[in-house]
Simulated scan of single mutants.
Amino acid sequence: MDANPSAGGPQAARPTVTELRLDAFRAHRQASYRLGPLTLFAGASGSGKSSVLQAYEALTRLGAGEELAGAFPDPAGCVPEGAGADPQGRRGFRLGCTVEGPAGTVRLDLAVQAEPELRVVGERLTGDGRTLLSTALRDPGRTTVQAAWHTAGSAGVTRAPLPDDRLGTALLPLRVAGRTQEQLHVIAAAEQVVLALRSAFACDPQPHRMRRPVAPGAGRLRRGCDNLAEVLHRTRSECAKRHARLAAAARGGCVGEVVDLVVEELADGTVQALLGRGGGRTATPVGRLGEGELRYLGLALVLLTGPGVLAMDQVAEVPPAYQSLTVLADGFDRCLDAAQRRELVALAAEMCARGHIRLVGTLADATSARGIGGVTVVDLGP
């Protein structure tokens, strides 16, 4: 399991998404949300909680080089209901984020056309008040946008076409030569944004899948936490201290006495996780736990691990100490009772305060989060 870097030093240099902007995206219009180490969005059903995380995850996919269609599988559904089209029949939305890091404060803003066809129609990357990259759709008949970025020299900018189905910022490090200070600044700003976006892990534990024994494997936790037993087998052997902390967390969220989390190999070669009960009592297979207990265990495991254990796209060329980890957890309190909610929010606050992770999540009920230090609750209203 990943070691917890000390505060300061590399932690201060980690690229971090500190603001998310949504305009004409589902229920959000000209919305801007500051993101702290632990930010939880609360509000009634339909208030836009989940769409904030959907927007964040879409940007992470684009930062990893995915095409627009992968980031927005239902583009028309991203446009607010009732939003009219322009005279050319076009409808779309805008997303943006601010990333703090070694290159300073860098802003990324993206305009996406959802109809009549999905494409990028404009992108802007800015840093230190200067535009470092701008793109625009000049010819709707082409599958490219016209891009311009700062290069210094006699021309000042370089112009070239870029695909209209990709994030131009993610392509810049491959397009800019890096021969001048201006070029190096553009590359540094683009890489900072891409690194921050790629360092995210979206999780949504699926209790019905977590009950089954699983085959041993690489021990990297999947989004649905269905391979919980496989990962517990790894954490128990690689990081006894962190595993003990997970067992302690389980005591706060599972019914009955819990003294340990153990893994048993079955006759068919699969493994299953069990709660050790102590006092000579028989261990309880996690498959017998309630949905709330299983979601609690999965989320606690995510909070106590790191990029090396989570099934996420790591940036191999960047040292781990300089990579952030942001967990995206829609329905952070789903299926949990009041005690479980408070225990889990307190654990998240503890880990985020240490600089181990950042977390952006949603809550149906923010009562459990209020009054816990380090928690930012964004109330989206009814």
Rank of each mutant, 00 (worst) to 15 (best):
P80I: 02
A218C: 04
F332S: 02
L325H: 13
S154I: 07
T151K: 11
V52S: 06
A369V: 09
Q113R: 03
P382C: 08
P205R: 02
D330F: 11
Y296D: 04
G8H: 02
C203G: 01
Q54S: 14
T135V: 03
D2S: 12
V345P: 12
E238S: 14
L303I: 05
G290C: 06
C239V: 06
G308E: 15
G46A: 14
T362D: 09
L195N: 00
S237N: 11
A190F: 03
C254H: 03
I357Y: 05
L232W: 15
G381H: 09
V106G: 08
R354M: 13
G65V: 12
E67D: 13
R34W: 10
Y33G: 01
Y56W: 06
A316E: 12
G89L: 03
L22D: 02
I187P: 03
L344Q: 08
V112Q: 01
F332E: 06
T169G: 05
G292P: 03
L171N: 07
G89S: 05
F41H: 01
L325F: 13
R119E: 05
S199L: 08
E182W: 03
R281L: 14
L133V: 13
G306F: 02
T98S: 10
E238R: 15
A200E: 08
E19C: 09
L325G: 12
G82Y: 04
P10Q: 08
F41S: 01
C225E: 00
Q206I: 05
G122S: 11
R341T: 07
G287P: 07
F93R: 04
L266I: 13
G355I: 06
R370H: 09
A85Q: 10
S51Q: 13
A7W: 08
A152H: 14
R220V: 13
V345R: 12
A250K: 06
V286M: 14
G381R: 14
P207F: 14
D164H: 14
I372F: 01
P207A: 13
E117I: 00
E19Y: 05
N4Q: 11
E19V: 08
A329C: 15
N4K: 10
A103K: 10
V99T: 08
